[in-house]
Amino acid sequence: MAVITLTGLRAWLVQRATAVYMLAFIVLFLARFVIAPPRSYDEWHGLMSGAGMIAATVLFFAALLTHAWVGLRDVVLDYVHVVALRAVLLPLLALGLVALGTWIVRIFWTIGG
């Protein structure tokens, strides 16, 4: 139910904190690939299967999905004023993001395993 209470100041803070994390991750990720690009699939796979890398990447996607939830929910609050339509759109949105999250976790589960 934490997502439901993600309003006002907390949502605003989470939006900014996740943005900062994503920016840092993208910069470091790209820097790593520019400075020392993996030469083969095995090297790339090795890089992505380290425990630290998996944790950082999963956190990146968690930040992305949370950021997207706050942002898209804002769009719904701004433009969709019919309560019934909101009641359909918001759960659909949440469901879509949860499905994406599950898919991402599954991919990393496979890599890790």
């Binding site: 006002g8 100041l9 804002d74 609050l77």
Partner: peptide, 12 residues
Amino acid sequence: LNRDPYRLFRCR
């Protein structure tokens, strides 16, 4: 101003 997501936090 923080009692709901509207009063202040609609500002983009």
